[in-house]
Nucleic acid binder design. Structure first.
Length: 206
DNA sequence: ACATTAAGTGATT
DNA sequence: AATCACTTAATGT
């Protein structure tokens, strides 16, 4: 199961062997927490199947959805946390049932210096997230809810490989850390612009 | 039929 | 964009 994923990767044979030998499979049910803010037990997740949601959690309890993690991806946040031995500032929850290959963080330092392919993998994970975060910041600075909503819908579509987003306005509002009323209004607007189609508990992206 | 939950809307800050 | 107050629509029991 981990084998087939490693086959598709560009990792060196030796690294593939190490990942196989030192990692372990973790199955997580939909809705379960994978990583919580605060103490970090220190293993790096590599997503084999399913979708994970990564949240930024603020001290006062507010939280915002940062991005989704899909098959083949890893959490850039938890990698730094492990390298720096810092507690994580993010919360990771399973959006669907998920299978993860957990890689003990003890190996990270060595792998990054020993294997060019691993180094590239880590940097690329960062690059991707960094670009994402830049976009998010743009929207935040200009308090552009509509942009964030649209991006959220498209991200969800991408992650679930479906044109149907099966969520209530309330749930969406929580993920974007805004109020339900605002989400309702904006969705109504998007519907009038024929960008989406609404049914109860479900939004179809056109 | 009634209660509950989701979604729509005007007015106000 | 957020909050309040209220309405309407859809669903569950």
């Amino acid at each position: 199961m981990i084998e087939e994923h490693l086959l598709q990767s560009s990792f060196e044979p030796l690294l593939k062997q190490e990942i196989k030998d030192t990692g372990y499979l973790k199955k997580v049910k939909k809705g379960d927490h994978v990583i919580d803010p605060g103490l970090n037990k220190g293993d790096i997740p590599l997503v084999l199947s399913g979708i994970l949601k990564v949240y930024r959690k603020e001290a006062t309890g507010n939280e915002v959805l940062l991005y989704y993690l899909e098959k083949g991806e890893t959490c850039a946040m938890s990698i730094t946390c492990c390298l720096e031995q810092k507690p994580s500032e993010v919360k990771v929850i399973a959006e669907t049932d998920v299978e993860i290959w957990m890689i003990p963080s003890v190996n990270l330092d060595r792998w990054v210096s020993k294997y060019p392919s691993f180094r590239r993998y880590v940097f690329q994970a960062y690059q991707t997230r960094f670009d994402e975060l830049m976009q998010t910041i743009d929207s935040l600075v200009f308090t552009n809810m509509e942009e964030r909503l649209m991006k959220y819908l498209l991200d969800t579509k991408q992650a679930t490989a479906s044109f149907e987003v099966v969520k209530t306005h309330r749930e969406i509002a929580n993920e974007l850390n805004t109020s339900r009323v605002v989400v309702s209004r904006l969705l109504k607007k998007l519907e009038r612009e024929n960008k989406i189609l609404q049914r109860r508990n479900c939004i179809e992206i056109l």
